[in-house]
Structures are given as structure tokens and as C-alpha cells.
Nucleic acid binder design. Structure first.
Lengths: 270, 270
DNA sequence: AGGGCCGTCTCGCTCACCGGAACAGGCCCG
DNA sequence: CGGGCCTGTTCCGGTGAGCGAGACGGCCCT
């Protein structure tokens, strides 16, 4: 909303880089345009994009034409949509492609054996990001999404990553206050540290109604060729019918197989 | 390989726009850089990108820094990788997200009922592009990939799209010679037309060893809210154990359910 | 017919971008 | 050892790609 910090001052006097996120480079504008599309937006009109980005209308129009030609945007009527080519390029990203291709069939097995939701997640920044999800018809109100992000401290996959991932991670996470997601979410660093310690001991992480009331999750780490932690695999089930021991058994078995599969496919990196 | 058309001439004398596909806009360069990463490339060095794109090294370097900051590229050592944010943005593309989210659980059902590979595909240009794939551990040599492309005339999903998609499509496809993928691939437009006609009559499309020897596929169209064709769903199985009638039955049942599900979720568009 | 949206297009100024060239480090080979 | 040859990185002056205020026409409301 605040377009310019001080409307009276000559803009040339203001801080040249303009402290807000906007950039005056072409790429900066393109970034603003593409990120103007929220996770739930289907399409946006040109003026709406102008409103959200703060970029001049003529510029948005010009850049949109070029993005259209590339296929990063598509157009129906006078509405812009994120284009298929974005999906295509996104699927090439190796950090998700390799893991996903290796884990997919095993996630299928897990789903068949449990009938519950299976997640594959990796660490990105200080959050987990879901690479893949296998689930049935269960209709919860706000379901998790592929490529969706979640905090580390309230998810089973997040705890697994905290326990078996980079050592400095825990410190960074508790540096900021831990968000309360449900009444049972752990927001005290000390308690979280205990859980992580417990996870290290038993080899898996667990979360009960800390992400969604009525559900619990069990997660196990996946290690890459070098022995470094790269991802986590989890089963999520309604608490009333969850069988934690069963899940742990299945996950440990599958985890070994996936690790072996990754090492066979990938030479050594990552 | 041919760097400059005539190595002796002063480059400033050469055609200023350089007739090849390269663009002299920032976005054009960025496109070249991102598309320098082939489907199987994991990482590229800066010089390799320069070689593939033909963009000046200083420019690639500068743009790469900016892409790095955005997260579209990542870096380990001195190698560039396509970055996680690309995956994230790609998953927001509505044309795949909506369909995929609606179809996912049903594809799971199909897989459980058949044990065979299930594909979800849409039309993009004159090819099919796979939005989703559910399969087991079967290790074929060159497996299909999510976001991979295939010709329309040799795949079951492609024929379904030809039969129930836009009317002008067939003409565009046969305008160019039909590539032979296996010995059984149909390369004669007349024969293809007959198959399409047959598909229209029975309501599904079939393909036997026209994409891969030893395998057949059955596909069914999925219609959106407006009644327009939007996608196709298929079962692929080794010919020796394939049960076409069973697949047709399952697909027709599931197709109706997905269509209903899409209409419920999506208001009316697409 | 007026006011408010919308998308489109023009046009001269100017600053972001360009890219040749120089630089620093690693590796192999003579 | 030193001289190629390969990396990735940095500098810097010239310039044209990109910029955005503003004008314009179409559409839907009052």
C-alpha cells in the first residue's frame, strides 16, 4: 500500500535501492509479477498484477507479452495464468526429481500397506517443503500440498530433519519464536530439544496433533550416498486408528530400500 | 558448434539482431540460461552455460547471480543447479494443479485395482504432456516422466485427446509426417483417422506396442465443467497380462467421478 | 453521457544492461 | 618450473533496451 516512503521528497533524493523488496532490474520485476500469483490464485488481470507488484502498468504489459511468448504465462480472455512451461521447468529441478523418482514406488507401497497419507519432504531454508504426497479421498479442510511449506517444529518430517540434518539447524529454528499451530504445538525450545533428542535415539520422529487436531504423523530420515541427510518420509493418520509401531516398522524397511536405490542411481553427490 | 557465421568479419558488421533464436532482451537471455539445463542435466558450470547459450560470459555471470538470489538457481561449489523455487512456482500452475489434485486419489484407486502404470495427460501444443504418473517398481529402460512430452499419434492419451479434443487438432498433427517410434507406430494419416473414429465411437482410445514394444495402453477422456475436453487418463500394461476390458470398465467409472469432482471444485472455466 | 474501470500503445529520456578485456586461481603437461 | 589452457570473477565506458507518464478506445456500470 505505501507506494513511496515520503511523497513530498524528490524521489531522486530517497534511498536509491528503495528498501522495499522491489527491484528496478528486469528480473526483479519479472519476479514480482510471477510471485504475484498466490498459491490459490488461478488467474489475474493486468491491473490486478499492477496493483500487487507496484510495477508500472506499461512495464507489466510489456513483460507479460514476453512471458506469454515464452510460455511462463498463458492467457485466456484478458486474464493471465501461470503457464505450463513453468510446470515443465519446475519438474526438471534435480533436487526434487531424483528423490521423487527414487521414492515414488515405495511411497505407493506404504500407501497400500497403511491406507494413510504418505509425505516426502526436504529441508528448504528453515521449513520443510513437500516434494510428493500419496493419499486417498480423505477430505480434510486445508490439505497439505505438493510444494507446500510447513514449519519444522510442528511436523514429524520437520523433527526428523532437525534430528538428523545439519547440526546448526536447531539453533536457527529456536532463534525465532515457535509458532503455535494447534493447542498441542510445542512452542518451548527446551521441550523441542528433548523430542529431537528422543528422535535421535529411536531413529524416527513423531508428532501428535501438533499440526492438525485429530491426526498424528511418524517420520523417518532418508540418507543420501554420502551419508548426509537429505529428506524425510512420513505417514499421517487420524489418531483413533493410527498404529505407530506398524508405521515405524514399514518406514524403517522402506527407508533402507530407498537409500540403497538412491545410492545406486546417483553417483555420489548430495 | 558454429560460433559466429564468418569468423573474419568484424562482429559489429554482422546482422545486428543475429537471425538465430537468441534474443537481446534480458528475458531472452534468462530463458536461454534456464533452458540450457536439459531434462537429464543435473548441474552446469558457468562456462558450459556460456557455450550452450551463446550469451557473453559476463552477462551469464551477472544474471546467474540474480537468479541465485531469487532461488531459481542454486549453487554447490561452482556448479549451478535449477533451484527449488522453480519447482515451487511450477506447482502453482493451475492448469496442472487443479486437475492433478482432483485426479490423484482416483489414480491411486486405479493403480490398486490394476497394479499397472496410470498416466494423467493434457494437450500442450501438438503433444501430450504428463501431469501425473502412478506406478510401481517396474524398471523399464526409458520410463515416462512427469512433465515429459510424447507425440499424439502413438500414445493412447494422445489419441483420446485427438478424438475428443478440438476439431482442428487432427489436421495440424497430420500436417507433418508422423514419427515412427516402434515398428507398430501408425505413420499413415488415413489409418490414424480410422482409429480416431473408432475411439469416438467406443468412447476410449487404445494403443498396442506403438509407443513401446511389449506394452499397450488404454485411455479415456476427462471433460471439464463446460463439457470441453481437458485431459486424458490411461492405464499402461505389458501386453501379455493386459486386460483391456477390465481397464475400460475401471476408466469409465473413474472418469465420471473425476469429472464430477472437477465440476464441484472448479466454478466453470477451462 | 458521464465516470470508472479495463487493456493497449506511443515516444523521448536515461539508466540498467552490456560485453570486451583484464584478472586470479587451479590443473595438466612439457 | 613456467607456460598454456581451462575455470570463475571483476571492471568500466558506451549505448540501446527498457522505462513509465500519459493518451486512447472499449466496456460496464450507474
Amino acid at each position: 500500500m505505501p507506494l513511496i516512503s515520503s511523497p513530498l521528497s524528490d524521489p531522486t533524493i530517497a534511498f536509491p535501492p528503495e528498501p522495499d523488496g522491489a527491484a528496478n532490474s528486469v528480473l526483479g520485476k519479472v519476479r514480482l509479477i510471477l510471485e504475484a500469483f498466490g498459491p490459490d490464485d488461478e488467474s489475474l488481470g493486468l491491473s490486478e498484477i499492477v496493483r500487487r507488484t507496484g510495477v508500472a502498468k506499461a512495464s507489466v504489459h510489456r513483460l507479460a507479452q514476453e512471458l506469454l511468448q515464452w510460455g511462463l504465462l498463458e492467457r485466456r480472455g484478458s486474464e493471465y495464468w501461470l503457464g505450463m512451461r513453468l510446470f515443465e521447468i519446475g519438474q526438471r529441478v534435480p533436487r526434487q526429481r531424483i528423490l521423487r523418482e527414487a521414492a515414488r514406488p515405495f511411497m505407493e507401497d506404504l500407501y497400500q500397506a497403511t491406507g494413510e497419507t504418505i509425505h516426502l519432504a526436504v529441508l528448504d531454508g528453515l521449513e520443510v517443503i513437500y516434494l510428493e504426497k500419496v493419499s486417498g479421498h480423505g477430505q480434510v479442510s486445508r490439505p497439505s500440498r505438493v510444494a507446500g511449506r510447513m514449519p519444522l517444529h510442528c511436523t514429524a518430517t520437520g523433527k526428523a530433519l532437525l534430528a538428523f540434518g545439519p547440526g546448526a539447524l536447531f539453533g536457527d529454528v529456536v532463534a525465532e519464536p515457535l509458532a503455535r499451530v494447534t493447542p498441542r504445538t510445542i512452542t518451548v525450545p527446551k521441550l523441542l530439544a528433548q523430542e529431537i533428542q528422543q528422535a535421535r535415539k529411536v531413529g524416527y520422529a513423531i508428532e501428535q496433533e501438533q499440526t492438525r487436531t485429530g491426526y498424528l504423523s511418524v517420520a523417518i530420515p532418508l540418507t543420501g550416498a554420502t551419508g548426509t541427510m537429505v529428506a524425510a518420509l512420513s505417514v499421517t493418520a487420524p489418531t483413533f486408528r493410527a498404529d505407530v509401531n506398524k508405521y515405524v516398522g514399514l518406514l524403517t524397511m522402506v527407508s533402507r530400500r530407498i537409500t540403497k536405490s538412491i545410492m545406486a542411481a546417483d553417483g555420489g553427490r548430495s
